[in-house]
Simulated scan of single mutants.
Amino acid sequence: MKEQLKLTLSNGVEMPMAGIGTFLLTPDEAEASCLSALENGYRLIDTANAYVNERAVGRAMRKSGLDRKEIFLETKLWPAFYEQPDAVEKTLERLDTDCIDLLLIHQPAGNYVAGYRQMEAAVRAGKVRAIGLSNFNKEQIREILSICKIRPVLLQTEVHPYFQEKSLKEFLASEGMAIQAWYPLGHGDQALLDEPVFTKLAKKYGKSSAQIILRWHLQSKTIVIPGSKNPSHIRDNFALFDFFLTPEEMAETAALDKGVRYYTSTPEMLKRYAELVPPVDQQK
């Protein structure tokens, strides 16, 4: 297995810093991608109720032949399930596991406080090792911090060189929370990958622009979960541990921050999220 970076979360749980994401993957694609990732040394998998591929992730973990404890499994509760008392139990059943390593509130929609209480109960019951939030802003995070009995250890949110969330990172660090990037490569934006800074560094280190960006994330203490169904991309997205960017190169990347994001939540979207029921019982 390739040596990889790990981060110790505020509750003492150790988490790999590079993993595979399964957003927008069909069950067949998710199973194949997760199996390929595990064969290439990955030990972090991210999924969600809303992705409707949790059963496929469970199959990939079993087929890998790895001990379940070697894999860090992360999933997310969807708003429609926050008030269902068996939401965590059903999630465990779909994943075919008796413990989730990290469980997140997927969206600040609906009764997310009820969802958070349910996650806290799951930690106390030994069904979940750590809990956190996804797509929450500072105000919403503060709300959870003010009422929680078990603190969130991590925020999963959009982060990439064009949207670096420097202020949010400082806030999270002050609260002992880690940050995890979805869209770590900017949603496949070719303009980002073609930035001269990255093409120059890619040539210097014999890497791709995507690998340079992912390495920048890791050295910024940002956990990454790029998604892919391409076996070569999956392999390359984990080949990050044999080079190191200099402080000057990290600063060059930091200077690219434009405050430009690819996904913007609105009250209307959150209302739709609260009403949407993913077809989790119909997944393969």
Rank of each mutant, 00 (worst) to 15 (best):
Ala173His: 15
Ile144Val: 11
Ile141Met: 02
Leu168His: 01
Gln164Gly: 14
Tyr162Leu: 05
Glu143Tyr: 07
Ala130Val: 05
Lys127Pro: 04
Val153Cys: 12
Gly126His: 04
Phe171Tyr: 14
Ile131Tyr: 07
Arg142Val: 13
Val153Gln: 09
Ala130Tyr: 00
Pro152Val: 15
Asn135Gln: 06
Glu175Ala: 12
Leu133Gln: 00
Ile144Gly: 07
Gly132Thr: 03
Val128Cys: 06
Ala178Gln: 04
Phe163Cys: 14
Ala178Asn: 09
Val128Pro: 02
Pro161Ile: 06
Gln140Phe: 10
Leu154Asn: 13
Ile147Lys: 09
Met177Asp: 14
Ser167Pro: 09
Lys138Gly: 02
Lys138Ser: 09
Leu154Gly: 02
Leu172Thr: 02
Lys127Tyr: 07
Gln140Ala: 11
Phe171Leu: 08
Glu165Asp: 11
Ile150His: 14
Phe163Gln: 13
Glu170Met: 06
Leu154Trp: 00
Phe136His: 12
Glu175Pro: 10
His160Ala: 09
Ala173Asn: 01
Cys148Gln: 11
Gln156Asp: 15
Phe163Leu: 15
Gly126Asn: 02
Ile147Leu: 13
Lys127His: 09
Asn135Ser: 03
Ile131Pro: 07
Lys169Trp: 08
Ile131Val: 12
Glu175Leu: 01
Ile147Phe: 11
Lys149Asp: 15
Ser167Ile: 15
Leu133His: 00
Asn137Tyr: 08
Arg142Gln: 13
Leu133Gly: 00
Ile131Gln: 02
Ala178Phe: 12
Glu158Phe: 05
Val159Asn: 01
Leu172Gly: 02
Gly126Trp: 06
Tyr162Ser: 03
Leu145Arg: 10
Cys148Phe: 05
Lys149Cys: 08
Ala173Thr: 14
Thr157Cys: 00
Val128Trp: 01
Val159Pro: 01
Gly176Arg: 05
Lys138Ile: 13
Pro152Lys: 02
Val159Leu: 10
Leu145Cys: 13
Glu170Arg: 10
Ile150Lys: 10
Val159Gln: 03
Gly176Lys: 08
Val128Arg: 02
Met177Pro: 12
Gly126Ile: 00
Ile131Asp: 01
Glu175Val: 11
Ser146Gly: 13
Ile147His: 03
Arg142Trp: 08
Asn135Ala: 05
Val128His: 01
Asn137Ile: 09
Leu154Val: 07
Glu165Trp: 10
Asn137Trp: 04
Gln156Met: 06
Lys169Arg: 15
Gly126Ala: 10
Phe163Thr: 13
Cys148Glu: 08
Ser167Cys: 03
Tyr162Gly: 01
Ala173Gly: 15
His160Arg: 01
Ile150Cys: 07
Pro161Glu: 04
Gln140Pro: 02
Ile147Arg: 08
Ala178Asp: 12
Met177Ile: 01
